[in-house]
Every structure is written in C-alpha cells, then in structure tokens.
Nucleic acid binder design. Structure first.
Lengths: 109, 109
DNA sequence: TTGACATGCAACCAAATGGTTGCATGATAG
DNA sequence: CTATCATGCAACCATTTGGTTGCATGTCAA
C-alpha cells in the first residue's frame, strides 16, 4: 500500500536526483526537456534518474502529446518521515542522553 | 557545522546499514562483534558499513580496550528531517493539490 | 610470556550505478 | 507527406559499491 522504503531511500541517495526533485518542487509539471535545461547532465542521464524516481513513486508522469509532464509526489517522503525517521525522532532525546552518559560516564570508572 | 547531507543520504541508502542503525536503536553501545551476531554478513562487511555510517556521523564510536563500542547519533537524521524533508512537508498539500488539479483538470480541456 | 580474542587493513572480485553515444519511435507543424 | 521536435531504447563504458579472503595489530587472561 505504501511506497517501497528501499527504493525511496536509494532514489534519494543521488544528488542529481535530489536536484531534480528540487526543480519539480520549485515548478511542478515540467517536461523532460525542461528538466534538462541548465543542467550539467545529458537528456539520457536525466531520463534514467526520472525512471528511478518514478519507480520510487517520488515522481509521477503524464503524457501530453509528444511531451511527458513530471510531477513531484511528496507522499513517499512524508511516509519516510513518519514511519522511519519519526521512529528515531521519538527516541532522539533518550538516545542522546544515553550516548552522553556512556561517553562521559566511563571517565568516572 | 552540520552533517554532510549527501553522506547521510548515501549511508541511509543501504538496507544493511539501516538494519545496523535499527540494531543500535534497539540497543545502543554495541561492539562490532555484537553487531555481527545473527546477521547475514561477514564481520568485514559490517566494518565497512560502520565506517560509512561513522563518516556520515550517524554512528559514533569509542574504544574500550580491544573492543569498539558503537552508538547511534540521531542528530543527522533529525537535520535531514528538519532541513530537507521539512521543506517538502511544508509544501505537501500545495503540491498535492496542484498535482491533482493538473492531472484531473486536463480532462476538462 | 603466550594463546585467544576483537578489531584493522589490504587486495581482490562481481555486480550495480551513473553516464555516454547512436538510433528508433511517435507527435506536431507546415 | 515530411521535416522537426520530444522522448524511448539499447549497447557500451568507467567508477563505485558491497562483499570476500588472508593476514596484521593490539589487548586481555592465564
């Protein structure tokens, strides 16, 4: 029902792909050609990145004639934040306190 | 001042490394040997993963004699959530609404 | 000291990744 | 129709990644 966590993390691991997401965040619904502009990557490289982003459902696309419009889908990022990062956030203070205790407490022994 | 975003994302991209973080979240301050137990990976593979996690500052370590204790550091994850995911979270409803409008609105044309 | 134990390091390897080039397909304008 | 434009696809390549094996170092216990 929800996005493949591994695909999302892997997709987010590349700076070029994060840049594409930023571009779509700034202006949604861009074509492949538009996304390639002012970018230090070939069209084919962008195509491959967009394919991975689509497989991670971070981007959805729609054909319009010979163009393909790309839209940012923030839901998988939200899910990551909620389900995975949230777990660490909830325990953050506990873990930090324990870490500090362990690291400093050893000096007393 | 803050963690290298790229290193953190790259470190989080591997399921084995996420598993190690989960292990440290469940029980902090484990040695390399402990982390290897009940794990489908060689000690050397775990060593390499821990090295990447440390370089991303997701894990900090401390020597105790011949052992090396590993601690989860949730701060970089927090930073990612705040600085990067937060950006998308803030625009989530806007982007989703725009996406829906774009995808459905075209049927009216 | 010496043997056992915990970890470190280097070389090596297969597979995945990110990128390229060249050509094919499909849509639109004239 | 046909030239052009936007995209798709396949082959190929270099580098990175994740993993292994073998050996070295350092620490603790007897």
């Amino acid at each position: 029902m929800h996005a493949d966590v591994d695909k999302v993390f892997r997709a987010l691991a590349d700076p070029g792909r994060r840049l594409l997401l930023d571009r779509l965040y700034a202006r949604n619904g861009q074509t492949l050609g538009q996304l390639c502009q002012h970018l230090d990557m070939s069209r084919q490289a962008v195509t491959k990145h967009l394919k991975l982003l689509e497989e991670a459902t971070l981007v959805v696309s729609q054909r319009r004639g010979r163009e393909k419009l790309h839209y940012l889908n923030p839901v998988p990022i939200h899910e990551i934040a909620e389900r995975w990062i949230g777990k660490y956030e909830r325990g953050r203070l506990r873990v930090l306190a324990e870490l500090k205790r362990q690291l400093e407490g050893d000096n007393n022994g």
